[in-house]
Amino acid sequence: MNMSTGMSSGMSAGEAAQIAARIAANVEKVVHGKAKAIRLAIAALFAEGHLLIEDVPGVGKTTLARCLARSIGGKWSRIQFTPDLLPGDITGVMVYHQREEQFAFHAGAVFANVVVADEINRGTPKTQSAMLEVMAERRVTVENFSYEVPRPFMVIATQNPIEMEGTYRLPEAQVDRFLMRLSVGYPDLDAEVRAVLADCAGATADDLQPVVDPAALREAVAAVRRSRVDPAVARYAARLAAATREHAVVRVGASVRGSIALVRTAQAFAAIDGRGYVTPDDIKDVAGPVLEHRLLLTPEAELDRRDPAEIVAGVLESTPTPLVNA
């Protein structure tokens, strides 16, 4: 079977899959037992989307983000969000140089290929907005000058959903900017033992070497965008998003951006598998991480502790999978 079916030129799906495999293997040297989360994170990278990792403290959110950043040969930066962090610390500021007698732009931490925004919900809303604006527009505007961030550009944000004191909850409209939301979760016992032994041996994210350069990553991203999406599969994705909007306990469902994110992530998933075309299974695989954080439940459902994951699972079960070309 020709794995590159559906690609027209440039990097093939098979080559993109090899890059994904190299990155996954590199990350798994430090992050153990989290193959699915790593695969999803790589999919977000290939889809050129941003990733929100949300989980309890100590399960490896930041480690996963740092490992992913270190695996890419480009520039990466880490921003620890705190209440006193200012927007200029992120985006950069204009500084007056007496010698040149002019203002010069000092780029902020956001000017990197991979930006790790640690504990993003500890930043003030103003700072969060600055960050999220960069995520959406991939450029920074200071004093009427616009500065493009390097490509590929990816923000990997982490946040702790339990500890609420001193935090500022991300606005729903801005959460929508994240391509997907991941939950790392606790590893199984064997994986935890491996993580402990690796730590004893001194293996850290800082020891990882880049396994792909930005140029190759850009080609991989381009290859992903060329993956074939059958109209029936696109219609299936749109139906899933529409079904979340029509769900009885959902106040605000997935937007059009959600449908687009669904297909784009599925394209990345297909490429990671070495396929140049998207299948309904790809859509189903990514539906949870892509759609769950976009759902706003009704107050009654919130009180009933209804889980968005359960709602997405129900939608997947009740929406007919496509069998013929639309």
């Binding site: 079977m1 079916t5 140049g276 998207v278």
Partner: peptide
């Protein structure tokens, strides 16, 4: 099914 229906080939 994937190859026949979705690959476009």
């Amino acid at each position: 099914v994937d190859r026949s229906l979705w690959s476009g080939a």
